[in-house]
Structures are given as C-alpha cells and as structure tokens.
Write a protein that binds this DNA or RNA. Structure first.
Lengths: 100, 100, 100, 100
DNA sequence: CCGTAATTAACAAAAC
DNA sequence: GTTTTGTTAATTACGG
C-alpha cells in the first residue's frame, strides 16, 4: 500500500486524480460547517437573551462582567482585586475613604 | 404597584432589598451560561475535528480557507480575485506567466 | 521608481496596461507598510516595558487593568462599579461584610 | 537591604505605606501610556491612508491582502496556493477550465 | 515543538 | 448613514 493511501486510510478509489482523498476531505468540511452553524445559532440565542434582559431593565455589560467573574476561581479574583487595590493606592487613584 | 416592579414585571417579593429583582437576573445569567457552555463545547468539537483531519494528512489552515470561501458568494470571490490579480500585475508581483 | 514607467515611458498618466495606476497604488502600499512598521516597533517597545516592569516585581496584568481604568471617565467607572455591586448583592456573590 | 527594596531597586523613601513603590510604578505606567498613544496615532494614520486610497478608487480590502502577501515568504505563499488549489479540485470547487 | 493564552486585526451589529 | 461598539477569527508570544 502506498504511503498516501496509508496516510489517509482510504481505499484507492477514494483518491482523486490529484492525490487528495476528496470524499474524506468533504466529510470533514461538512461536519465542521455543521458544527459552526450550530455554534452561530447559539451565539444568536445568547445575543437575543441579552437583548431581552436589557428590555427588562438589566445592563448587559454588567451581566457580562458578572458571568466572567463567575467563571473564575473566587480566590484568584480576590487576589487580583487586592493587587489592583494596592496599585491604585500607590498611584493615588482611590476615591475618598468615605465612599469606599 | 411601584415603578420598578412594573419595569421588571415581578411580584413584590421577588425584589431584593437593594431594588434588583435577583431571581429574574439569576435566571437570565444561568440561561446565558448554559448556552455559552454549549457554544464552548461546539468550539472544542470543531478544534478536535481539525486535529483529527490534520492527523489524517490534511492541512487545517487550508481547510479553514476552503470553509471561508464556501460561505461567500462565488461571484464575490471571483470579483475580488480579479481585483487582486490586477493589483499584483500593477505592482509586478506576479510569477512568470509559465506558471500562471 | 516604477519599472513600468521606465519600460513604457509613461509619465503623468502612469496607468498600467491593465488600467490600474500602479505607481499611485505602490506609493499607498509603501506608505502604509512604513507606518505599520513603526506601529510594530512601538508594540515591541511596550512589550519590553511590561517585561522590564515584571522583572522589577510588578504584575503586568494588573498594570494593564490600571491603564484601562485611567483611560475611562472616573464617573463612568464608579457608576458601573455601583451597578456591578448591586448585581453581586442580588446574586449573593459578595464576600462576608468583614472583608468588604 | 530588605528583600522588597532589592526587588524594586529603590531607596526606602520611594516605598508607599502599602509596600508598593508608587513612583516607579507610575513611571512605567506613564511611559507605556505614551507609547500606546503614539501607536494609536499611527493606527489612525493608517486608517486615513486607506480612506484616501479608497477615495481615489482603490479597494482597501484588496490592498490589505496585498500587504499581507508582501509580508510573507513567496515560496510559502505559492506552496499554500498549490494546496488550496488541490483541495478545490478534490471538492469540485473550481471554475470551468476555460476561465482558469 | 506543541498546545495554550493573549494580542491584534477583521467583521458584524447597533446606536445615534 | 456613519460611526462606534462588540464579537469573532487569526496571528503572535509564551510556557510546558
């Protein structure tokens, strides 16, 4: 068996005249296209949900921030917040203590 | 009925002490997180498929190019190719005619 | 200087045989390439600075966060922080009051 | 000399009460902000040039493609084009030979 | 060197 | 309509 046939794991008649196993390639392409379509649908669903939430008085931008925070380890978040706070102090970026 | 209750369409007892209808917000957040999870799973599936194709001798980068082309209107593609070719000519970027 | 102009003795019109004014196009391309080169150099300088700061004990990620905050209007930042805080309250995401 | 002073290479009086050498941090931040500003200016200049070229009849999208090609090794470009052509053949995506 | 993470550029969508 | 904003894709840099 030739190297190319071994590489692609296909019978000889699945190989196009140019040496590319077109059927195998087509199957990969179509499976990926199908998955990307589903992914795009979910993206649209998510966008719709944010719009609906916005219509009900919620702030999508802040919702996204919440979701981002919930994905992270709380300890990591606290740690990073602490460093950020130190840097703000060192740079005089903090609001007056009365509103902390 | 208060303005906020009207805006959010919720019964009084669904409103947190801070004025945010927490349950409604939580439901939105959790629905979005669920959809994002499914979306991420599909993204992983697509990556896996590219890896499998690569293992079988295909070039993922070129596959992506193919998929991008298939999404476009063929006439658009031809049109843009034609302009690109003109620009290459004008800039002397073309290979010798023998291999065109 | 354009080869084509020399070859064809074209002057003001500078139009290639394919109808594209190659000299004008080339000038645009080269000006853009020059600017992109300078832009890339600055990007490298910035990366070097972050590395140097990291070597001196600073956290580049937090520095980036600081820089992002300094670009925004402080009132906007405070406003958004306030909403974020309300949402966290409503979702029970706040740490115990003792460490607020 | 304390560990922190060594790490930051600063005299004791440059250290804020919270342990962060604020002056050193501020200098880094401001240098980076300056460089980013210059970088943004170049980005705007590039955008302006594309707009001007567009106003003179050139296609910015194709110009970008040209610039991308000129950055790459020509052999790489040819190689990838060849694979793309093979895949198109194998998938029946080629135009009739008469217009190749 | 490979996979991962982060930056950047391209594209699409939505606000004004 | 255009102009910004947000999302997605791709390149690049980094660490294992």
């Amino acid at each position: 068996m030739s190297e190319m046939q071994q590489a692609h794991g296909l019978a000889a008649d699945a190989i196009s005249t140019n040496g590319i196993p077109g059927e195998e390639l087509r199957v990969y392409i179509e499976r990926i296209e199908r998955l990307e379509e589903e992914k795009a649908t979910l993206g649209q669903d998510i966008r719709d949900l944010y719009l609906e939430a916005k219509g009900n008085g919620f702030d999508p931008k802040v919702m996204k921030e919440i979701i981002k925070l919930r994905k992270k380890d709380p300890d990591e978040v606290d740690e990073e917040d602490a460093i950020l706070h130190l840097y703000k102090q060192a740079l005089g970026m903090l609001n007056p203590p009365s509103i902390q």
